[in-house]
Write a protein that binds this DNA or RNA. Structure first.
Length: 587
DNA sequence: GTAGGGTTAG
């Protein structure tokens, strides 16, 4: 007993050790204790400095201070390295974490599964792929290749890098797949835009009897949001309620986002109201939900409420609220909010906010003001995204001269972006300059630039079906096309006139109407109408923006089929009902 | 003592 006490660091009983504990993770008090340590000549005590350092990281102290503390220790030991690496990883100092890892190797101290999982997380955070790969080698050499903690960290590392194939390989090799490993893989798919794969992996997890936890559902709900998988999304919500999961703010926000992106903004609001400790992310998600649906005044109302009794808005919040104003035509409100960013909150507007402003002014038809805004606000060369917003406004309001000027400028600064060529050619087509359309088309072919392929998805009975333009891969293709043809002729009888101006120029003239008729959203709608009962609303998610012709056609379809049709395109929602759209053609 | 999660313009 006595011998044991002798081996314990004497300082753990010392008043100064208690003083460190009392200071806790607060920089100023820690520095005061540090001064005492130096004065009393204990500055070289490893255990005191180790404790001091761990609190310093928890207090997110300046790197210069923590580094100097570290350097004051003559011979750092295993315990010090291990605590430093795990702490820096946990408190998001990935650079420091890797630095200590290197120092540890130089000091000839070996890693454990604790340090490995921490340092792998750090290299994922830092986005240093080579370092991560090297550490993976170290893991294998040191014999931790089958440790479930280390493997889960590796899965998430590779997934963060978009190396899903390697992530999956590590995952598949795990002898014991913990729920964390499943979650890492599911979230990896979701964050790389593979919502379908994320959902498939969840079903596999279910089949194997692995119990999901709240993190599983957060990722799963994001996948549902991405795909518009409202059926599964609702099932998850019911499951959460039935199994008495705690509706914490992260899970709540995932639900809010899922409901808004799946078209049910009032349900999103219900969830929002029921979340107890709402933080800035939850508020922003809800504001963005209103914005996406064109409910600008509700977005502003919520934003005002937040200013009074919620957390401080951040840059993301301002993007969400300004975009809401843009999509609802609330120009003067948007101007005021933009001004308040700097005046009241000291936030410097960034490119995203400039884009929102140009978009807002441009949509509302204030093209000159939008152009002036770019000249006044943006000091150096404006970001391409700002010009893209300006170009969209020119196209919308058919200002060909300005549109061509902007498009040509965009092409000169970003010649590799196919989207700009598409816009330019569309503007030429609208102006009837078919010779120019042809020219742009040839440049695209010469430079092998391809337009992004459009697709639409629809959720029927908790299954997601994907359609692309002219798609014939579906087993019931014939039935779908026949039905669509019939539907379109009924629309024509009801007054619909197909337009061909918005067809992409790579399509040959004689195929134009054909192509328009089989745009992916129309195929998905036909399928939805065939597969669901009368009265059931059709919900579609499209990856690109809808063309003007589809927008008109779908208004007619909502009449002749007597159905509500909700489409989420790249930018926002369109709720079609009785021949009109919720965006009031303001898109 | 470890690993995994939610919001953002065009």
């Amino acid at each position: 007993m006595e011998a044991k006490q002798l081996h314990q660091p004497a300082s753990s009983h010392s008043p100064i050790y208690h003083a460190i504990l009392q200071a806790g993770p607060r920089l100023k008090p820690l520095q005061q204790v540090h001064a005492r340590i130096v004065i009393t000549g204990l500055g070289r005590s490893r255990s005191l400095i180790t404790k001091l350092l761990s609190f310093a990281y928890a207090a997110t102290s300046p790197i210069t201070y923590t580094r100097r503390l570290f350097l004051s220790i003559p011979e750092p030991d295993t315990f010090l390295f291990h605590s430093l690496i795990t702490l820096t990883s946990k408190f998001n100092f990935p650079q420091e974490s890797l630095l200590y890892y290197r120092r540890m190797i130089l000091a000839n101290i070996s890693s454990t599964n604790y340090t490995f999982s921490a340092v792998i997380k750090s290299s994922a955070d830092l986005r240093t792929f080579n370092t991560g790969e090297t550490i993976h080698c170290h893991v294998l050499i040191c014999g931790y290749g089958l440790d479930s903690y280390v493997q889960a960290a590796l899965v998430s590392f590779y997934a963060k890098w978009g190396q899903l194939w390697i992530a999956r390989k590590v995952f598949d090799k795990m002898p014991e797949k913990t729920v964390v490993a499943w979650n890492s893989m599911i979230s990896g798919y979701e964050q790389n835009g593979f919502g379908k794969e994320a959902i498939a992996l969840f079903y596999l997890m279910q089949d194997l009897g692995v119990k999901p936890d709240s993190t599983t559902f957060v990722s799963l709900l994001s996948a549902c949001a991405q795909l518009g998988a409202v059926g599964l999304g609702c099932w998850v919500h019911e499951y959460i309620v039935r199994n008495c999961f705690d509706l914490n703010v992260v899970l709540g926000t995932a639900l809010i986002n899922m409901y808004s992106r799946c078209g049910n903004v009032s349900k999103a609001r219900e969830v929002f109201d029921s979340v107890e400790e709402k933080n800035i992310v939850a508020w922003t998600a809800m504001i963005s939900g209103y914005g996406m649906h064109g409910h600008g005044s509700q977005a502003i109302e919520l934003f005002s409420e937040m200013r009074v009794l919620g957390p401080r808005p951040n840059n993301v919040t301002f993007v969400a609220i300004l975009s809401a104003c843009a999509h609802a035509g609330l120009v003067s409100e948007g101007r005021q909010i933009f001004a308040s960013m700097r005046q009241e909150y000291g936030l410097e507007p960034s490119v995203e906010h400039q884009v929102c402003m140009v978009d807002m002014l441009g949509r509302a038809g204030h093209l000159n003001e939008a152009y002036q805004f770019i000249r006044d606000m943006v000091s150096k060369e404006p970001a391409p995204a700002v010009w893209t917003a300006m170009l969209g406004a020119c196209k919308m309001h058919k200002d060909f001269d300005l549109g061509v000027e902007v498009a040509e400028h965009l092409l000169s600064i970003q010649p590799e972006n196919p989207g700009h060529y598409v816009m330019l050619s569309n503007i030429y087509a609208l102006a009837g300059r078919m010779d120019r359309v042809e020219k742009v088309r040839n440049i695209m072919i010469r430079n092998r630039l391809k337009k992004e392929v459009g697709y639409s998805t629809i959720d029927v009975d908790q299954k997601i079906y994907l359609f692309s333009m002219g798609d014939k891969s579906h087993p019931e293709t014939n039935e779908i096309y026949l039905y669509l043809d019939e539907l379109m002729s009924r629309c024509r009888e009801a007054g619909y006139v197909p337009a061909s101006e918005s067809v992409m120029h790579e399509v040959e003239e004689e195929e134009k109407e054909h192509a328009l008729r089989y745009h992916s959203e129309k195929l998905a709608i036909a399928f939805g109408l065939l597969k669901t009962s009368p009265g059931v609303a059709i919900r579609i998610v499209k990856n690109l923006r809808m063309c003007e012709d589809c927008h008109t056609a779908i208004k007619h379809i909502s009449v002749v089929s007597n159905r509500e049709i909700n489409i989420r395109d790249r930018l926002r929602f369109h709720h079609f009902k009785d021949g009109s759209c919720s965006c009031q053609d303001y898109w």
